[in-house]
Design a protein around this nucleic acid. Structure first.
Lengths: 182, 182
DNA sequence: GACCCCATGTAAGACGTTACATGATTGT
DNA sequence: ACAATCATGTAACGTCTTACATGGGGTC
């Protein structure tokens, strides 16, 4: 299960509570890479603690527990990241699914959808460019840098999808006039 | 559940058996957009048939049943594709997760992983370029065209990730010499 | 006849989502 | 005081995965 590695990865950057991790999933990780809610995260933290991969380093107000990775956890994370994935994993992404099924629509409808995609990806890319500008010049390691490689990754994805959507609209335009009967 | 829409989408392009749909998932859809095995697909086809969104149009050898979308199914698919997603759905992608957690590694290890990524994305992109060349000039609708928008989508994604990986390696290089102590 | 692929199915268990629930602390 | 947010947890339900199971049809 990848949830465990997602948690190890976040905790490897800096210790956090289950609640804080839940927020991280909502704001960044969960949007692009791996979704999880607090009802999955809390029990998983417990299991990781049992396996000795994380530990509670402090307890704060309202019963909050701050977790940190142990050396064993860091090693587990490292080997998971370094091992080349044997075969492509199991992907689930509703947005991408929509894009794959576009050909099932007639061109007029497809262009409507592509227009929405072009808009939303442009907006998302603009947002990430602001984030990137805010972090300019800082190092790529540590909590600060954590988001940087990821943000650039997301930005380039959005740009690619945006350009694809624009391209696809143009193709459908041409296809409609060239290939459709009368 | 998006599996139902994935099936409607594939069947909207051309009728197929559960077995053939399973193959489609293995070869294309499942790699990028939505994973599912035959043990999910068969029961779901049954449920779609009960709801009148698909129907069995013929039965062939070895008990195979060919399904096709009904007009109601086509309408359901259309409205699902056209409705702008209210809020970003639940994404799961182990590859992307790895990329997001790279900052948890030290730069030397991160560069190894990025090297693998750069290689595999280059290979995948090359494969898709061949597919694209094979389909050049044909229409974007119908079974032939189905893969074209999708293939181009995949190609641009791979190219974007490849360029990101190359960029990230260069950044880590610079970061190591500029920002690390001593 | 042997083997491989086609084609579908069932069932146990793991996993995840949704809804419900509780209480502490902070801000106004 | 009140509301919002912090912080965690339980339980029921639904979905998915894994393993097992069966038999027809084509090919050598």
């Amino acid at each position: 299960m990848s949830l465990s590695h997602a948690l190890l990865g976040l905790l490897a950057v800096e210790p956090a509570s289950g609640y804080a991790l839940t927020k991280s999933f909502e704001l960044s990780l969960g949007r692009y890479a791996w979704h999880a809610g607090h009802t999955s995260i809390y029990p998983e933290l417990g299991r990781l603690a049992e396996r000795g991969l994380v530990e509670v380093t402090s307890e704060g107000a309202r019963g909050s527990r701050t977790y940190a990775v142990t050396p064993a956890g860091r090693e587990e994370l490292r080997s998971w990241l370094l091992q080349p994935p044997k075969q492509s994993g199991k992907v689930r992404n509703e947005e991408v699914l929509r894009m794959f099924l576009l050909s099932a629509l007639d061109p007029a409808d497809a262009k409507i959808v592509l227009g929405h995609v072009a808009e939303s990806t442009a907006a998302a890319a603009a947002g990430l460019r602001e984030i990137r500008a805010a972090h300019e010049g800082s190092s790529f390691r540590g909590p600060e840098g954590f988001g940087q490689l990821a943000a650039e990754f997301g930005l380039r994805q959005y740009e690619a999808v945006h350009e694809w959507a624009v391209w696809a609209m143009a193709q459908l335009e041409g296809d409609q006039t060239t290939n459709s009967p009368a």
